[in-house]
């Protein structure tokens, strides 16, 4: 998107990092939702489909978490670093003007 339009619409706050985090959270709840559903399914057809979807959801979660670790947006092994990052993100969100 055009930088000026982004600034005008406030869309510049929606950085790649925010989008990636959203995707990670969605992937996580996706895995959990599917795991719940798989154990409720009895019909083999549905169970097969759901198991496959669960595997795909896991793959997406793996891809996006690896991507975020690579980018330094997700410190799985360094709690202190992650807290620092989270505090920064909270601050950014709080200081965001309401449209």
């Amino acid at each position: 998107m055009n930088k000026i339009v982004e600034k005008l619409t406030g869309m510049d706050a929606l950085t790649d990092q925010v989008v990636a985090m959203d995707l990670l959270v969605s992937a996580k709840s996706g895995v959990r939702n599917y795991a719940m559903a798989v154990t409720e399914a009895g019909t083999p057809e549905i169970k097969e489909i759901l198991t496959r979807h669960l595997e795909e959801a896991l793959e997406l979660h793996e891809q996006i978490s690896n991507y975020m670790i690579e980018k330094g947006w997700y410190h799985a092994w360094d709690t202190d670093e992650q807290i620092k990052l989270n505090l920064q993100n909270i601050d950014t969100a709080l200081k965001l003007p309401t449209l």
């Binding site: 996580k28 895995v31 959990r32 795991a35 719940m36 154990t39 896991l58 799985a76």
Partner: peptide, 12 residues
Amino acid sequence: VRNIATALTETA
């Protein structure tokens, strides 16, 4: 199954 799936989403 549910516990393992949850654990997987916390694994790096």
